[in-house]
């Protein structure tokens, strides 16, 4: 049985603006649970969730685990170093084995684009994509959007620029889909060697210089620069990247208005973002992390069949949620 989101959350591309708003609205009451002394409600009591991480992750996995535990689900973490292929078991066999254990949900992180969809098509459990290759990272996109909404209210017409390695970023793709669906104006800024060649067809503005992006934007979402991009020859050096594309205090000081700085983490201080920006007044980076737990609680709750209007009640501890399923 599936809720208002369908069976799975694979990406923001397949969601409507209303579905995205539903998740964000559902996250609102869940924010407060994390502020309590006893951070637990029984909404997903009796549900079993597997966190299947084929790729290293600290932040996302912990965030999901807290979200699951605060909803009283039983969780198991499976960390497979490297891919399933290197372990000798194929992803389809992994999927079948999980299914045989009668689990309710799988949160999957995998280095291959499409891995979450692959799994979702082969098992009946709900599947949540916690990042697949360079495709999508929908809960990150949602928490970024929730953080923006906290500051801006309605995102319609708001000018958001995503900076850095768009080519390899699943965070960028989820943000572009989600923000476009909520009516924001979206731009990207980065070296052309780190933008997809087809970026013109994404429905975004493109800035070649970060100074232009800062002049235009009301918020910058600064992406992490993966070190392997240098060794693969996409850009010459981290030093030059910081000189040309780094978000520095000097550059921000020239912004015409107030500007919000987001970063999905983990940060390379002194590369894509300078410390005094990350720790400065513009930064909402830690608010993003806090929102991450609430957004993931909302996604888990809705996919489990929880009624959005009961999220407030679920928060109160009435235990509605999975039990509501037909």
């Amino acid at each position: 049985m599936t809720g208002t989101l369908g069976k799975d959350l694979l990406g923001l591309e397949s969601l409507t603006g209303d579905q995205i708003r539903l998740i964000l609205d559902t996250a609102e009451p869940f924010k407060e649970i994390s502020e309590r002394a006893i951070k637990k409600v029984p909404a997903l009591r009796g549900s079993t969730i597997v966190n299947l991480f084929f790729e290293n992750s600290t932040r996302t996995r912990i965030s999901f685990e807290f979200a699951e535990k605060r909803l009283s689900a039983d969780t198991v973490n499976v960390s497979a170093s490297g891919s399933s292929v290197s372990k000798g078991e194929t992803l389809v066999d992994t999927a079948r084995n999980l299914e045989a254990m009668r689990i309710d949900m799988v949160v999957i992180r995998h280095s291959a684009s499409g891995a979450a969809q692959f799994l979702a098509e082969r098992i009946q459990s709900n599947v949540i994509n916690a990042g697949d290759g360079t495709h999508e990272h929908p809960t990150q996109g949602l928490l970024d959007i929730l953080t923006l909404r906290d500051r801006f209210g309605d995102l319609k017409g708001r000018r958001i620029c995503i900076c850095g390695d768009i080519l390899h970023s699943r965070v960028a793709r989820s943000n572009i889909w989600g923000l476009n669906k909520l009516g924001a104006e979206v731009a990207v800024c980065g070296p052309r060697s780190l933008l997809p060649n087809a970026i013109d067809e994404f429905g975004v503005k493109i800035f070649d210089r970060v100074e232009e992006a800062i002049e235009w934007a009301e918020a910058l979402n600064v992406l992490r620069l993966q070190f392997e991009r240098m060794t693969a020859g996409y850009i010459p050096s981290a030093r030059e990247y910081n000189r040309v594309f780094g978000i520095t205090r000097e550059r921000l000081d020239r912004a015409p208005g107030d500007i919000l700085i987001l970063h999905p983490g983990p940060m390379n201080r002194g590369v894509e973002i300078d410390s005094d920006v990350a720790d400065g007044p513009h930064s909402v980076i830690l608010a993003q992390v806090t929102n991450g737990v609430a957004v993931r609680m909302a996604v888990l709750y809705l996919l489990a069949g929880g009624k959005p209007e009961l999220a407030e009640a679920a928060k109160g501890g009435s235990g509605r949620g999975r039990e509501d399923r037909e």
Binding site: G114, R173, A198
Partner: peptide
């Protein structure tokens, strides 16, 4: 390589 590869996150 094109819009579909860019959307799917596959190297083109």
């Amino acid at each position: 390589e094109g819009i579909v590869s860019a959307q799917l996150g596959l190297k083109g």
